[in-house]
Amino acid sequence: MSNIPENVRYTETHEWVRKDEGKYTIGLTDYAQHEMGEIVMAELPEVGTEATKGDSMGGLEAVKTAEDFYAPLDGEVAAVNEELESNPALINEDPFAGGWLYAIKASDDSQFDGLLTAEEYKTHIGE
């Protein structure tokens, strides 16, 4: 069974979103990192990039799979996890903390409430 913490929200495309001070931090769920296998490359957006909900913001590559990740909210990229450049496997090792991908300064906070709850995500992945 995957780790699905209650303190964050989720998307159908397997991102988690955490509400922090003034921004939203985004990462890949434990379920998705497990499905992908060891991640060997993370292509992240640049700080300042405009994000529109549903847009591809970058990609992750394992040995035999490559997946894009998508903006869960409208806004602007406020920070990216630069440690992933040298150690993308952090996404596998610590998906909900050290393996975060990037953060968005949202233009419409209400979008956050529309994201999946832990319970809904659990149903979505059939666990």
């Binding site: 490359m41 590559e61 394992a62 040995v63 035999k64 799979t65 490559a66």
Partner: peptide, 12 residues
């Protein structure tokens, strides 16, 4: 480096 290739990345 197979993720560059068509059988994985398809249209991309």
């Amino acid at each position: 480096l197979q993720t560059r290739e068509q059988h994985i990345k398809r249209a991309k």
